[in-house]
Design a protein around this nucleic acid. Structure first.
Lengths: 110, 110
DNA sequence: AATATTGTTCGTAATTTTGCGAACAACAAA
DNA sequence: TTTGTTGTTCGCAAAATTACGAACAATATT
Protein backbone atom coordinates (compact mmCIF):
# COMPACT_ATOMS: atom_id res chain seq x y z
CA UNK A 1 0.00 0.00 0.00
CA UNK A 2 1.17 3.49 -0.74
CA UNK A 3 1.74 5.74 2.16
CA UNK A 4 1.04 9.13 3.66
CA UNK A 5 -2.46 10.11 2.67
CA UNK A 6 -4.01 13.35 3.74
CA UNK A 7 -5.90 13.47 7.00
CA UNK A 8 -9.67 13.75 6.58
CA UNK A 9 -11.20 16.84 8.13
CA UNK A 10 -13.42 16.14 11.09
CA UNK A 11 -15.57 19.08 10.12
CA UNK A 12 -17.58 20.17 7.12
CA UNK A 13 -15.93 23.16 5.47
CA UNK A 14 -19.18 24.55 4.07
CA UNK A 15 -20.88 24.29 7.40
CA UNK A 16 -17.94 25.84 9.21
CA UNK A 17 -18.00 28.78 6.79
CA UNK A 18 -21.73 29.18 7.43
CA UNK A 19 -21.23 29.28 11.18
CA UNK A 20 -18.35 31.71 10.78
CA UNK A 21 -20.32 33.97 8.47
CA UNK A 22 -23.14 34.20 10.98
CA UNK A 23 -20.61 35.14 13.65
CA UNK A 24 -18.92 37.66 11.38
CA UNK A 25 -20.71 40.75 12.64
CA UNK A 26 -20.11 42.52 15.97
CA UNK A 27 -23.81 42.87 16.68
CA UNK A 28 -24.43 39.19 16.14
CA UNK A 29 -21.52 38.26 18.39
CA UNK A 30 -23.02 40.56 20.99
CA UNK A 31 -26.39 38.87 20.66
CA UNK A 32 -24.83 35.44 20.98
CA UNK A 33 -22.85 36.45 24.07
CA UNK A 34 -25.97 37.91 25.58
CA UNK A 35 -27.99 34.77 24.94
CA UNK A 36 -25.17 32.51 26.09
CA UNK A 37 -25.15 34.28 29.45
CA UNK A 38 -28.69 33.17 30.28
CA UNK A 39 -31.08 30.37 29.61
CA UNK A 40 -33.36 32.39 27.40
CA UNK A 41 -34.90 35.82 26.95
CA UNK A 42 -37.36 37.78 24.90
CA UNK A 43 -36.81 39.79 21.76
CA UNK A 44 -37.38 42.98 23.71
CA UNK A 45 -34.56 42.20 26.11
CA UNK A 46 -32.15 41.77 23.23
CA UNK A 47 -33.39 44.89 21.49
CA UNK A 48 -32.94 46.84 24.70
CA UNK A 49 -29.27 45.83 24.86
CA UNK A 50 -28.55 47.18 21.40
CA UNK A 51 -28.45 50.70 19.95
CA UNK A 52 -30.18 49.71 16.71
CA UNK A 53 -33.69 49.57 15.30
CA UNK A 54 -35.86 46.59 16.11
CA UNK A 55 -36.16 45.73 12.42
CA UNK A 56 -32.40 45.36 12.27
CA UNK A 57 -32.28 43.28 15.44
CA UNK A 58 -34.97 41.04 14.01
CA UNK A 59 -32.93 40.61 10.85
CA UNK A 60 -29.78 39.64 12.76
CA UNK A 61 -31.77 37.17 14.82
CA UNK A 62 -33.14 35.67 11.63
CA UNK A 63 -29.66 35.11 10.28
CA UNK A 64 -28.46 33.53 13.50
CA UNK A 65 -31.52 31.32 13.46
CA UNK A 66 -30.94 30.29 9.85
CA UNK A 67 -27.33 29.47 10.66
CA UNK A 68 -28.69 27.28 13.43
CA UNK A 69 -26.94 29.01 16.31
CA UNK A 70 -30.11 30.17 18.04
CA UNK A 71 -33.76 29.29 18.09
CA UNK A 72 -36.92 31.25 18.69
CA UNK A 73 -40.25 30.30 20.12
CA UNK A 74 -43.46 32.28 20.21
CA UNK A 75 -44.79 32.91 23.66
CA UNK A 76 -47.59 35.22 22.81
CA UNK A 77 -47.32 38.12 22.69
CA UNK A 78 -43.56 37.80 23.04
CA UNK A 79 -40.92 35.77 21.27
CA UNK A 80 -38.45 33.85 23.36
CA UNK A 81 -34.96 33.29 22.02
CA UNK A 82 -32.19 31.01 23.20
CA UNK A 83 -29.01 29.33 22.07
CA UNK A 84 -29.50 26.20 19.98
CA UNK A 85 -27.40 23.96 22.17
CA UNK A 86 -27.11 21.09 19.75
CA UNK A 87 -25.68 23.22 16.98
CA UNK A 88 -23.68 25.28 19.44
CA UNK A 89 -21.81 22.11 20.38
CA UNK A 90 -21.43 21.23 16.75
CA UNK A 91 -19.97 24.64 15.94
CA UNK A 92 -17.72 24.46 18.97
CA UNK A 93 -16.38 21.12 17.78
CA UNK A 94 -15.98 22.28 14.19
CA UNK A 95 -13.99 25.36 15.13
CA UNK A 96 -11.85 23.41 17.57
CA UNK A 97 -11.11 20.74 14.96
CA UNK A 98 -10.38 23.36 12.34
CA UNK A 99 -7.84 25.17 14.49
CA UNK A 100 -6.30 21.88 15.54
CA UNK A 101 -5.56 20.85 11.97
CA UNK A 102 -2.50 23.07 12.12
CA UNK A 103 0.53 20.86 12.63
CA UNK A 104 -1.47 17.70 12.21
CA UNK A 105 -0.46 17.52 8.56
CA UNK A 106 -0.62 13.99 7.21
CA UNK A 107 -1.04 10.54 8.60
CA UNK A 108 0.90 7.53 7.46
CA UNK A 109 -0.81 4.20 6.99
CA UNK A 110 1.43 1.55 8.48
CA UNK B 1 -19.70 43.96 48.52
CA UNK B 2 -22.61 43.25 46.24
CA UNK B 3 -22.75 39.89 44.65
CA UNK B 4 -23.05 38.03 41.38
CA UNK B 5 -21.39 40.18 38.78
CA UNK B 6 -21.19 39.11 35.18
CA UNK B 7 -18.19 37.13 34.09
CA UNK B 8 -15.75 39.10 31.95
CA UNK B 9 -15.22 37.68 28.49
CA UNK B 10 -11.76 36.27 27.93
CA UNK B 11 -11.97 37.36 24.32
CA UNK B 12 -12.47 40.58 22.43
CA UNK B 13 -15.85 40.57 20.71
CA UNK B 14 -14.77 42.88 17.91
CA UNK B 15 -11.70 40.80 17.22
CA UNK B 16 -13.67 37.58 17.33
CA UNK B 17 -16.14 38.99 14.81
CA UNK B 18 -13.24 39.99 12.56
CA UNK B 19 -11.76 36.49 12.66
CA UNK B 20 -15.17 34.98 12.02
CA UNK B 21 -15.87 37.31 9.12
CA UNK B 22 -12.60 36.34 7.46
CA UNK B 23 -13.54 32.70 7.87
CA UNK B 24 -17.07 33.31 6.61
CA UNK B 25 -16.50 32.26 3.02
CA UNK B 26 -16.05 28.69 1.72
CA UNK B 27 -13.11 29.62 -0.48
CA UNK B 28 -11.29 31.24 2.41
CA UNK B 29 -11.88 28.23 4.63
CA UNK B 30 -10.51 26.10 1.84
CA UNK B 31 -7.41 28.27 1.61
CA UNK B 32 -6.89 28.14 5.35
CA UNK B 33 -7.25 24.36 5.43
CA UNK B 34 -4.82 24.05 2.56
CA UNK B 35 -2.26 26.26 4.27
CA UNK B 36 -2.77 24.56 7.61
CA UNK B 37 -1.89 21.23 6.03
CA UNK B 38 1.64 22.34 5.19
CA UNK B 39 4.34 24.64 6.42
CA UNK B 40 4.01 27.07 3.55
CA UNK B 41 3.40 27.31 -0.17
CA UNK B 42 3.33 29.70 -3.06
CA UNK B 43 0.45 31.70 -4.47
CA UNK B 44 0.45 29.48 -7.54
CA UNK B 45 -0.11 26.35 -5.48
CA UNK B 46 -3.15 27.89 -3.85
CA UNK B 47 -4.50 29.19 -7.14
CA UNK B 48 -4.09 25.75 -8.64
CA UNK B 49 -6.29 24.25 -5.92
CA UNK B 50 -9.15 26.60 -6.67
CA UNK B 51 -11.53 26.98 -9.62
CA UNK B 52 -11.42 30.77 -9.58
CA UNK B 53 -9.46 33.59 -11.20
CA UNK B 54 -6.12 34.55 -9.74
CA UNK B 55 -7.36 38.09 -9.10
CA UNK B 56 -10.06 36.64 -6.87
CA UNK B 57 -7.64 34.34 -5.09
CA UNK B 58 -5.37 37.29 -4.46
CA UNK B 59 -8.27 39.22 -2.98
CA UNK B 60 -9.22 36.42 -0.62
CA UNK B 61 -5.60 36.11 0.48
CA UNK B 62 -5.51 39.83 1.12
CA UNK B 63 -8.52 39.59 3.40
CA UNK B 64 -7.09 36.67 5.31
CA UNK B 65 -3.85 38.58 5.68
CA UNK B 66 -5.64 41.69 6.91
CA UNK B 67 -7.54 39.60 9.43
CA UNK B 68 -4.16 38.32 10.58
CA UNK B 69 -4.80 34.66 9.92
CA UNK B 70 -2.10 34.25 7.29
CA UNK B 71 1.03 36.04 6.21
CA UNK B 72 2.79 36.46 2.88
CA UNK B 73 6.41 36.90 2.04
CA UNK B 74 7.97 37.80 -1.29
CA UNK B 75 10.40 35.22 -2.59
CA UNK B 76 11.00 36.66 -5.98
CA UNK B 77 9.46 35.93 -8.34
CA UNK B 78 6.99 34.06 -6.17
CA UNK B 79 5.05 34.91 -3.05
CA UNK B 80 5.12 32.46 -0.19
CA UNK B 81 2.10 32.21 2.08
CA UNK B 82 1.67 30.52 5.41
CA UNK B 83 -0.52 30.51 8.50
CA UNK B 84 0.18 33.28 10.98
CA UNK B 85 0.72 31.00 13.93
CA UNK B 86 0.57 33.64 16.61
CA UNK B 87 -2.84 34.90 15.53
CA UNK B 88 -3.99 31.39 14.72
CA UNK B 89 -3.51 30.52 18.38
CA UNK B 90 -5.22 33.71 19.40
CA UNK B 91 -8.22 32.95 17.20
CA UNK B 92 -8.30 29.37 18.44
CA UNK B 93 -8.41 30.62 22.02
CA UNK B 94 -11.03 33.26 21.29
CA UNK B 95 -13.39 30.83 19.62
CA UNK B 96 -12.88 28.24 22.34
CA UNK B 97 -13.57 30.81 25.06
CA UNK B 98 -16.59 32.09 23.23
CA UNK B 99 -18.19 28.69 22.89
CA UNK B 100 -17.33 27.88 26.49
CA UNK B 101 -19.24 30.88 27.82
CA UNK B 102 -22.41 28.86 27.43
CA UNK B 103 -23.43 27.58 30.85
CA UNK B 104 -20.74 29.56 32.59
CA UNK B 105 -23.23 32.33 33.32
CA UNK B 106 -22.20 34.45 36.25
CA UNK B 107 -19.65 34.30 39.02
CA UNK B 108 -20.37 35.20 42.58
CA UNK B 109 -17.86 37.15 44.61
CA UNK B 110 -17.95 35.50 47.99
C1' DA C 1 -65.15 47.60 18.11
C1' DA C 2 -61.23 50.41 19.16
C1' DT C 3 -56.48 50.34 21.47
C1' DA C 4 -52.20 48.69 23.00
C1' DT C 5 -48.27 45.47 22.98
C1' DT C 6 -44.79 42.69 20.73
C1' DG C 7 -42.16 41.47 16.78
C1' DT C 8 -41.93 40.41 11.81
C1' DT C 9 -42.03 41.68 7.09
C1' DC C 10 -41.76 45.00 3.29
C1' DG C 11 -39.68 48.44 0.57
C1' DT C 12 -35.86 51.22 0.03
C1' DA C 13 -31.18 53.24 0.17
C1' DA C 14 -26.32 52.98 1.05
C1' DT C 15 -22.49 50.20 1.46
C1' DT C 16 -19.78 46.08 1.07
C1' DT C 17 -18.57 41.82 -1.01
C1' DT C 18 -17.53 38.84 -4.71
C1' DG C 19 -15.63 37.84 -9.11
C1' DC C 20 -13.56 38.81 -13.42
C1' DG C 21 -10.38 40.43 -17.19
C1' DA C 22 -7.01 43.68 -18.29
C1' DA C 23 -3.26 46.28 -17.05
C1' DC C 24 0.61 46.63 -14.41
C1' DA C 25 5.08 45.79 -11.48
C1' DA C 26 9.18 43.29 -10.43
C1' DC C 27 12.40 40.52 -11.70
C1' DA C 28 14.95 36.74 -14.48
C1' DA C 29 16.27 34.84 -18.87
C1' DA C 30 17.11 34.90 -23.72
C1' DT D 1 16.20 45.03 -25.17
C1' DT D 2 12.68 41.87 -25.55
C1' DT D 3 10.28 38.08 -23.54
C1' DG D 4 8.47 35.24 -19.89
C1' DT D 5 6.99 34.29 -15.13
C1' DT D 6 4.55 35.41 -10.94
C1' DG D 7 1.15 37.98 -8.49
C1' DT D 8 -1.03 42.41 -7.37
C1' DT D 9 -3.93 46.21 -8.43
C1' DC D 10 -7.52 48.61 -11.11
C1' DG D 11 -12.02 49.22 -12.91
C1' DC D 12 -16.20 47.42 -13.39
C1' DA D 13 -20.66 44.79 -12.76
C1' DA D 14 -23.62 41.90 -10.11
C1' DA D 15 -25.07 40.39 -5.86
C1' DA D 16 -25.38 40.43 -0.93
C1' DT D 17 -25.37 42.87 3.45
C1' DT D 18 -26.73 46.34 6.65
C1' DA D 19 -29.93 49.57 8.48
C1' DC D 20 -34.13 52.04 8.82
C1' DG D 21 -39.12 53.50 9.09
C1' DA D 22 -43.57 52.17 7.95
C1' DA D 23 -46.88 48.80 7.54
C1' DC D 24 -48.57 44.71 9.13
C1' DA D 25 -50.05 40.37 12.02
C1' DA D 26 -51.45 38.27 16.19
C1' DT D 27 -53.19 38.63 20.39
C1' DA D 28 -54.86 40.78 24.70
C1' DT D 29 -57.24 44.73 26.89
C1' DT D 30 -60.53 48.34 27.36
Amino acid sequence: MSCCKKNENSFNEEQLARFAKAMGHPTRIEILCFLASMDSCYFGDIHQELPIAKATVSQHLKELKEAGLIQGEIETPKVKYCINRENWEKAKTYFASFFDTLNEKTICCK
